[in-house]
Simulated scan of single mutants.
Amino acid sequence: MCLGIPGELVAADADNADLAVVDVAGVRRRINVGLLADEDLKIGDWVLVHVGFALSKISEEEAQAVLDYLEGLGPAYDDELDALRQSDIT
């Protein structure tokens, strides 16, 4: 199962405006934010990430609510986090 998971923007890519780094449950991953070019994203913003793309900008409250729900899914959420850890850039 592939889930959309909230991630907090923690760094921008100085060489490519379409790329940024998000923190998802302690895992840092480079993602494409090009679909949200009109959103004026900045460090600290939250986005919904799916297969390496930021699909929408969300509030911190919404991000926390989604994370709480996903944690309740158990194995499906754990599988997604394991997949993210394999691509951790730190």
Rank of each mutant, 00 (worst) to 15 (best):
L19T: 01
A14T: 01
D88H: 12
W46R: 05
M1C: 01
A17D: 12
L84Q: 09
D40V: 03
H50V: 04
V51D: 15
M1Q: 02
N32M: 06
E71P: 00
Q64M: 11
G52D: 05
S59T: 12
V47R: 06
D18N: 13
D78A: 13
L73M: 14
R28A: 03
A11E: 14
I89C: 11
D88V: 01
H50P: 00
I31D: 13
R85K: 15
S59K: 10
V24N: 11
E8T: 07
I5Y: 07
L9H: 10
V51T: 15
D13C: 12
G26M: 02
S59W: 04
A11T: 05
I43Q: 15
D79G: 06
E8P: 00
A14Q: 00
L73H: 10
D79V: 05
G26P: 11
L55I: 09
N32C: 11
K42G: 04
R29M: 04
L55F: 08
W46I: 00
A20Q: 07
L67E: 12
E39C: 10
L84N: 11
L36N: 02
S87W: 03
R30Y: 00
G74E: 07
A65V: 05
L3Y: 03
L84E: 04
E8S: 02
L55T: 08
V10L: 08
F53W: 15
D40K: 15
V49Q: 06
L3E: 02
L41I: 12
A65W: 06
M1H: 07
N16K: 09
V66C: 02
R29Y: 02
S59D: 02
